[in-house]
């Protein structure tokens, strides 16, 4: 019991002192972990989960459809999920997993991938 408490306390201390941000991680790597499962290695909406998705994930290389969405909409879709922008629930909510800064970087990255918008 005592060791458990000490352990729990140590965990807390570590949690508080450990660096909470991981800005070193490239945004491309983040995309490769969280987004590729549906949006695919080619970033065009062809991930391994696609056969079981009733709505096709957005093609992030498509300048036309991506260009039609503002930065605000993309930020909102990523943070709060598809439902928040009247799209499918199959686009998940990432606000709990990614930091605000990472989501900002992600939107910039998506602009690079689609070569569109601002």
């Amino acid at each position: 019991m005592k060791t458990q408490m000490a352990a729990a306390f140590a965990g807390l201390v570590l949690l508080l002192t450990a660096p909470t941000s991981h800005a070193e991680q490239s945004i491309e790597q983040i995309y490769g972990i969280y987004c590729v499962q549906c949006h695919g290695l080619n970033r065009n909406g062809t991930g391994i989960n696609v056969p079981s998705l009733s709505v096709k994930p957005r093609d992030h290389t498509d300048a036309k459809s991506m260009g039609d969405s503002s930065d605000e909409e993309l930020t909102k879709a990523i943070t709060e999920g598809g439902l928040a922008v009247n799209k499918s629930v199959l686009m998940p909510t990432w606000g709990h997993v990614l930091s605000e800064d990472q989501i900002k970087d992600m939107v910039k990255y998506l602009r690079k991938v689609c070569k569109c918008g601002t």
Binding site: T3, A6, A7, F9, A10, G11, V13, L14, L16, T17
Partner: peptide, 17 residues
Amino acid sequence: KGLLLAVAGLTAAFLSS
């Protein structure tokens, strides 16, 4: 001090499991 505590706790966590 935090570090010391953390190390102590770490050892404890390690021992308990």
